[in-house]
Design a protein around this nucleic acid. Structure first.
Lengths: 132, 132
DNA sequence: CTGTATCCAGGTTGATACTG
DNA sequence: CAGTATCAACCTGGATACAG
């Protein structure tokens, strides 16, 4: 598993994967600060640029456009331009994108449910640093 | 699902989640450039600092240390110091970390298997830009 | 409406050197 | 071995202005 992404712990080559590794670039794109949110937002339904921007709080036009271009290039989202004035551009997930978001929502849901545990861990650590 | 992470697409509040949102901080930590790789590397077995650095190719000492401190604070990894000289520090996953990496490896494995499709998408897009 | 281009501040990263 | 400190460079990301 994850043969492309992790260096050989057992064998010991050591520098098996660098930034040039294709799998790494995909991972970086997908894990990008905004990519996850965009992907998951699109999972519910196709959205237009503005709606997407509203759905993903705090993203600038620049970053949203940039993220979308990357995700489109990787084949995760589909860009549909309606030839109207003003132009309407709708983004939706491709089949590949749907598969991907399946894994992502699993992760996000887990974070949601386990948030209390993480906060507890943080609190405990803070207490240790203060007390002992 | 993901109620903490996505702004209201339907309702329409818009700025429901900012960077201060606890769930977002967890997501950011976990999705960090190196965090994923560290987590998955530790999934196979506990590793010492150096071994971990070898397993995760291309990470600097500084970044590895920083990542580990964050993951430790969030309760995903456990840090064990052996009182020897020279000191030996072993990192392992906590129960929480194990759950998390379950989702992560799912994602990573998917990337591995679907890499060809992504590369095909990239190629096709490049072809479109060039030709038509 | 949907972007793109430019500028600029700030955070992040890496190299290096040093400590326990 | 396992870090931490410091510094400079880079890149990211936001604001603004403008274009199709």
């Amino acid at each position: 598993m994850s043969t492309q992404l992790l260096g050989a712990v057992e064998g010991g080559r050591g520098d098996v994967f660098d930034s040039a590794c294709p799998a790494r670039t995909v991972l970086d794109h997908v894990m990008g600060k905004w990519a996850v949110l965009v992907l998951v937002a699109l999972r519910a339904r196709p959205l237009r640029f503005s709606a997407l921007r509203r759905a993903v709080g705090g993203v600038s036009e620049k970053m949203l456009a940039q993220t979308l271009r990357t995700l489109e290039a990787d084949g995760f989202v589909h860009r549909e331009v309606a030839p109207t004035t003003p132009p309407q551009v709708t983004y939706s997930l491709t089949g590949l994108g749907h598969e991907l978001t399946g894994h992502l929502t699993g992760l996000l849901d887990w974070i949601d449910t386990r948030l209390p545990d993480v906060q507890a861990a943080r609190a405990e650590r803070a207490a240790v640093r203060a007390g002992t």
